[in-house]
Protein backbone atom coordinates (compact mmCIF):
# COMPACT_ATOMS: atom_id res chain seq x y z
CA UNK A 1 0.00 0.00 0.00
CA UNK A 2 1.36 3.38 -1.02
CA UNK A 3 1.55 5.23 2.23
CA UNK A 4 2.06 8.83 1.29
CA UNK A 5 2.29 11.18 -1.64
CA UNK A 6 5.73 12.57 -2.44
CA UNK A 7 5.04 15.76 -0.57
CA UNK A 8 7.51 18.24 -1.97
CA UNK A 9 7.12 17.33 -5.59
CA UNK A 10 3.34 17.36 -5.44
CA UNK A 11 3.37 20.90 -4.20
CA UNK A 12 6.11 21.98 -6.56
CA UNK A 13 4.09 22.11 -9.77
CA UNK A 14 3.49 20.63 -13.18
CA UNK A 15 6.42 18.35 -13.78
CA UNK A 16 6.16 16.52 -10.51
CA UNK A 17 2.37 16.55 -10.21
CA UNK A 18 2.03 14.62 -13.43
CA UNK A 19 4.30 11.89 -12.10
CA UNK A 20 2.90 8.39 -12.00
CA UNK A 21 3.00 8.12 -8.18
CA UNK A 22 1.04 11.32 -7.83
CA UNK A 23 -1.58 10.11 -10.31
CA UNK A 24 -1.96 6.79 -8.53
CA UNK A 25 -2.33 8.56 -5.21
CA UNK A 26 -5.05 10.84 -6.61
CA UNK A 27 -6.90 7.90 -8.20
CA UNK A 28 -6.80 6.04 -4.90
CA UNK A 29 -8.28 8.97 -2.99
CA UNK A 30 -11.02 9.49 -5.58
CA UNK A 31 -11.97 5.81 -5.48
CA UNK A 32 -11.91 5.80 -1.69
CA UNK A 33 -14.15 8.87 -1.60
CA UNK A 34 -16.60 7.50 -4.19
CA UNK A 35 -16.88 3.95 -2.87
CA UNK A 36 -15.53 3.81 0.69
CA UNK A 37 -16.94 7.20 1.65
CA UNK A 38 -20.34 6.34 0.22
CA UNK A 39 -20.49 3.03 2.09
CA UNK A 40 -19.47 4.67 5.36
CA UNK A 41 -22.10 7.38 4.83
CA UNK A 42 -24.76 4.75 4.18
CA UNK A 43 -23.79 2.92 7.36
CA UNK A 44 -23.89 6.12 9.40
CA UNK A 45 -27.31 7.04 8.02
CA UNK A 46 -28.77 3.63 8.91
CA UNK A 47 -27.29 3.79 12.40
CA UNK A 48 -28.62 7.33 12.84
CA UNK A 49 -32.10 6.22 11.72
CA UNK A 50 -32.06 3.43 14.31
CA UNK A 51 -31.14 5.64 17.25
CA UNK A 52 -33.09 8.79 16.30
CA UNK A 53 -36.00 9.03 18.77
CA UNK A 54 -38.77 9.31 16.18
CA UNK A 55 -41.12 6.77 14.56
CA UNK A 56 -39.06 4.52 12.28
CA UNK A 57 -40.05 5.98 8.89
CA UNK A 58 -39.63 9.57 10.08
CA UNK A 59 -36.26 8.85 11.66
CA UNK A 60 -35.11 7.26 8.42
CA UNK A 61 -36.32 10.15 6.28
CA UNK A 62 -34.61 12.62 8.61
CA UNK A 63 -31.29 10.77 8.64
CA UNK A 64 -31.42 10.33 4.85
CA UNK A 65 -31.89 14.09 4.46
CA UNK A 66 -28.92 14.70 6.75
CA UNK A 67 -26.69 12.11 5.08
CA UNK A 68 -25.46 14.49 2.36
CA UNK A 69 -23.77 16.61 4.99
CA UNK A 70 -22.21 13.46 6.45
CA UNK A 71 -20.93 12.44 3.03
CA UNK A 72 -19.36 15.82 2.39
CA UNK A 73 -17.64 15.71 5.77
CA UNK A 74 -16.36 12.19 5.08
CA UNK A 75 -14.99 13.20 1.66
CA UNK A 76 -13.25 16.25 3.10
CA UNK A 77 -11.69 14.03 5.74
CA UNK A 78 -10.54 11.51 3.09
CA UNK A 79 -8.75 14.21 1.12
CA UNK A 80 -7.27 16.01 4.10
CA UNK A 81 -5.56 13.10 5.86
CA UNK A 82 -1.90 13.00 4.89
CA UNK A 83 -1.27 9.23 4.76
CA UNK A 84 -3.33 6.98 2.53
CA UNK A 85 -2.86 4.15 5.02
CA UNK A 86 -4.62 6.17 7.71
CA UNK A 87 -7.53 6.89 5.38
CA UNK A 88 -8.01 3.20 4.61
CA UNK A 89 -7.77 2.20 8.25
CA UNK A 90 -10.13 4.95 9.36
CA UNK A 91 -12.73 4.07 6.75
CA UNK A 92 -12.54 0.36 7.50
CA UNK A 93 -12.75 0.69 11.27
CA UNK A 94 -15.58 3.23 11.32
CA UNK A 95 -17.63 1.31 8.74
CA UNK A 96 -17.22 -1.96 10.68
CA UNK A 97 -18.10 -0.17 13.92
CA UNK A 98 -21.31 1.21 12.39
CA UNK A 99 -22.20 -2.15 10.85
CA UNK A 100 -21.69 -3.88 14.19
CA UNK A 101 -23.89 -1.39 16.00
CA UNK A 102 -26.58 -1.72 13.31
CA UNK A 103 -26.46 -5.48 13.73
CA UNK A 104 -26.72 -5.15 17.52
CA UNK A 105 -29.70 -2.81 17.20
CA UNK A 106 -31.35 -5.37 14.93
CA UNK A 107 -31.59 -3.10 11.94
CA UNK A 108 -31.29 -5.70 9.18
CA UNK A 109 -34.73 -6.40 7.68
Amino acid sequence: MQNSIPQRSAAAGTTASSGIRYRLAVTARVLLALVGGYILTSAILILLALIWPLPKAQALAASTMLSFLVYVAVVIWIFSVRRLRNVCAGLLISTLLCAGLIWLLGGIA
Binding site: T41, S42, A43, L45, I46, A49, L50, K56, L60, A61, S63, T64, M65, S67, F68, I102, G107, I108, A109
Partner: peptide, 14 residues
Protein backbone atom coordinates in the same frame (compact mmCIF):
# COMPACT_ATOMS: atom_id res chain seq x y z
CA UNK B 1 -32.82 11.78 -1.22
CA UNK B 2 -34.42 8.33 -1.46
CA UNK B 3 -32.81 7.74 -4.87
CA UNK B 4 -29.36 9.10 -3.97
CA UNK B 5 -29.12 7.45 -0.56
CA UNK B 6 -31.23 4.28 -0.88
CA UNK B 7 -29.30 2.28 1.75
CA UNK B 8 -31.64 3.14 4.62
CA UNK B 9 -34.87 2.11 2.92
CA UNK B 10 -33.18 -0.98 1.47
CA UNK B 11 -31.95 -2.21 4.86
CA UNK B 12 -34.84 -1.22 7.08
CA UNK B 13 -37.70 -1.92 4.64
CA UNK B 14 -36.47 -3.83 1.60
Amino acid sequence: AAQYMPAGIATLYG
